[in-house]
């Protein structure tokens, strides 16, 4: 019974150590220059995997220790195990056998409550002073040696990386723009465009594009120029002064993708 408790405690301790180690590694992973998004997800993933790995290790480890064959081996391993656990509990967990409690009782009692003079568990001290050291290194890393990246530096890197990627995509012709866009009239594109219209534009332009907050898109007037190229431009950059927001960050400008179909729908409603 006693052994069981000790085993459980040891198991808990190892799991805890695993969590501590993995979180400490996550702490300093902030310096990686990869886009923050992917890095964060991977870190979380690593933490989870680390914990699971240690849990499994413990689950395997404890039964393994209990599988000796002969009686001799049993007693020998039991002794070894006791020794090992003794060392562990003594040095790290710091638990005194419960029988020793009487000698640890302090004299005073407060409304019947007494206190034991147990040592502070060594693992507690390891944890406490360990985190103090981590905290000091953390401050040094970001503010003295400046090896860690502060939020705005992380941000600049992130934006820079995204800009490079975007330039690549533009060069490869993956995006259409206001000079390359062309009108599509096939029913499939039109209905896809209609779906996008219904999902995004109805609040201002009305369900039948008759206009509410935004102007009517079904009459013969074009405020910002007709034709697919002008309509594309209006949607892409918006007309901020009049409340038409720029959609270039929201619609996919990839060839044959949403943004194009929307333009087709919008300009197809009236004669271009």
């Amino acid at each position: 019974m006693n052994l069981k408790i000790k085993n459980t405690l040891k198991f808990l301790f190892l799991t805890f150590a695993a969590v501590m180690i993995s979180s400490a590694s996550a702490l300093f992973a902030q310096t990686v220059t990869e886009p923050v998004q992917a890095e964060m997800n991977m870190n979380t993933y690593y933490i989870i995997m680390f914990v699971i790995f240690f849990l499994l290790l413990n689950l395997i480890f404890i039964p393994l220790m209990k599988s000796p064959k002969t009686a001799e081996e049993i007693s020998a391993s039991a002794i070894a195990q006791k020794k090992l656990i003794g060392v562990l509990t003594g040095k790290i967990i710091g638990l005194q056998p419960i029988e020793a409690e009487k000698s640890l009782l302090l004299d005073e009692d407060y409304d019947g409550i007494q206190e034991l003079d147990n040592n502070i568990p060594p693992w507690f001290n390891i944890l406490f002073y360990g985190t103090v050291i981590i905290a000091i290194i953390y401050m040094l890393n970001f503010h003295v040696f400046k090896t860690g990246k502060l939020p705005f530096q992380e941000y600049n890197d992130e934006v820079f990386a995204a800009q490079l990627q975007r330039d690549e995509l533009i060069k490869s012709g993956a995006f259409i723009n206001e000079t390359t866009v062309e009108l599509l009239n096939d029913p499939e594109s039109l209905s896809a465009g209609k779906q996008i219209f219904l999902a995004n534009c109805v609040p201002c332009h009305g369900e039948n594009a008759g206009g509410t907050v935004g102007p009517n898109l079904t009459d013969q007037f074009w405020i910002h120029g007709g034709g697919i190229k002008n309509v594309f431009k209006t949607i892409k950059y918006g007309v901020p002064v009049k409340g038409m927001i720029a959609w270039q960050n929201q619609f996919n400008p990839k060839k044959n993708a949403a943004g194009w179909k929307l333009c087709t729908f919008a300009s197809g409603n009236k004669s271009c």
């Binding site: 409550i113 206190e115 034991l116 003079d117 040592n119 568990p121 507690f124 406490f128």
Partner: peptide, 15 residues
């Protein structure tokens, strides 16, 4: 009080 047991460690309380 509810468990009728002594507090585990006075020193830990202080720290």
């Amino acid at each position: 009080k509810a468990a009728n047991r002594p507090i585990y460690s006075y020193r830990l309380s202080i720290l």
